[in-house]
Simulated scan of single mutants.
Amino acid sequence: MTLEAEPETRQAPLVLLAAGGTGGHLFPAEALAERLAARGLRVALATDGRAAAYAGYFPAENIFVIPSATPSRRSLPVAIKAAVTLGRGIWRARALVRRIRPAVTVGFGGYPSVPPLLGASFNAIPTVIHEQNAVLGRANRFLAPRATAIATGFANVGGLHDGLRGKATQTGNPVRPAVLAAAATAFSPVPAGGTLRLLVTGGSQGARVMSDIVPPAIERLSADERGRLAIVQQARDEDLERVRETYARLGVAAEVAAFFKDLPERMAQAHLVIGRAGASTVAELAVIGRPSILVPLPGALDQDQAANAATLGKIEAATVITQADFTPERLARELSEALARPERLTRAAEAAKSAGIPDSAERLADLVIRIGRLESALETRR
C-alpha cells in the first residue's frame, strides 16, 4: 500500500541532520531523529558515502549523500584534494538546503557535517552543532562561529573560548534505546569470593591493544583469581583465535567475538568494563552506571578520548590508564585489587550513574525545537 504525502501546507516542519564517518556521530543523530519524529517532526539525513552504506536503518524520510573529505596536514596533495571535495560538497549542500528548506539543521561533528551546515548557514537556516567529546573537534571548531547554538555532551568542553560559551548548552550525549533499556538493570555487587564479570571492548573494530594486553594480564593472576573471572571480550577477526586459545589454556570462562549485537546488555551485566574512551562509550557507561578501566586512544590531535575519560576518572567512576602504561603487569594489579576489594566497584558504579544523562536526546530535541522556533508549528498540529 502506498501512502500519499500530506499537502505541502499541512506537512510537518523538516529537520535536517548531518552526520557521518563513524557510529560515534550516527548513534546520537539516530537517537535525536527518533525523538523529533515522536514529536511530530519530519527528519532527513545528510551523510557521506562511508556512512551511507550502513545508514539504511536510520529513521529519516530521506538520506542525502553529500561529498566530504578530511583535510590532511601531512600531505599537500591530499589536502588539496580534500579541499576540492569539500567545495563540491558545500555547493551541493547549498542547493539541497535551498530545495528542501529545513526549519533547522543539526550537525554532529566530523567533516561530513561541514557541507550541510555551511549550506544551511548560506541559506539563512538556523544551525545547531552537537559536540560529543570533552574537547571541541576540528570540524565543530570551524563551524562554531557560524552556528546558532552549540550543544555539548559534557559540562566543560575544551576549545570553547569565551565568545562561544554563550551559545553552548549541555544536553549530554544521546544514547540508543538499547542503552536506555540496559540502564534499567541495577548494578549487582560482586559477592564475597564470587565471580567478577569482565567486559572488554575496543570500539567498533575491536582494539588490537586489548587482545595484546588483557589475556597476558589474566595469565599473571593466581589460579584462584582466574577462577573467579567470567570474561566477554571483543577482538578483531585476526586476533580471535589467539585470544580464545589463551583463555582456554588458562581455564578461564570466556566468550570472545568480533562483534556483539547486544553490547549495551552485556555492559549492564558486567561488574567492570575495560575499553577505549570514545564519547559514546563514556556516555553509555554513565547512563548504565558501570565502573571501568579506560585506555584513551593515543596520538589523537585533540586528545579527545583523554578528556572524555578524565570526566569519569575525576569522580572515581573509572581508572584511566594511558596506553603507554597499559601493560599486563599494571592491568593484573588492577584486576587483583578489584577481586580483593569488590566494594570499590560498587562505589564506582554509583559514581558513574550519577554522571549519566539518560534524557539527553529529549534535551537536545528541546534545544533544536527552540532554535528552529518550531513550538507554534507543533502546537497547531496537535
Rank of each mutant, 00 (worst) to 15 (best):
A5R: 15
P13Q: 11
G24Q: 07
P28H: 01
L32P: 00
R35A: 09
R39I: 08
R39A: 10
G40F: 01
A46G: 07
A51D: 02
A53K: 11
A55Y: 02
F58I: 01
N62D: 14
I63H: 10
V65K: 02
S68D: 07
P71L: 09
A82L: 03
G87R: 13
R88K: 15
G89D: 03
R92H: 13
L96H: 06
R99L: 12
R99C: 09
G107T: 10
G109T: 03
Y111S: 04
S113V: 04
P115D: 05
T127M: 03
H130D: 00
N133E: 03
R138T: 10
A147E: 03
T152Y: 01
V157Q: 03
G163R: 15
G163Q: 13
L164Y: 04
T169W: 00
P189D: 11
G194P: 00
R197W: 01
L199P: 01
V200D: 11
T201E: 05
Q205Y: 09
V209T: 15
D212H: 06
D212N: 12
L221I: 08
A230G: 03
Q234P: 01
D237T: 14
D239A: 12
Y247C: 05
R249T: 13
F259Q: 09
L272T: 11
P296G: 12
A300N: 10
L301A: 15
Q303V: 00
Q305L: 09
N308H: 11
A310S: 14
A310H: 06
K314V: 13
V320A: 12
A324M: 10
E329W: 04
L331K: 10
A332I: 08
E337S: 14
E343T: 13
T346G: 03
A351W: 01
A351N: 14
E362R: 11
D366P: 02
D366L: 08
I371Q: 10
L374A: 12
S376R: 15
S376F: 08
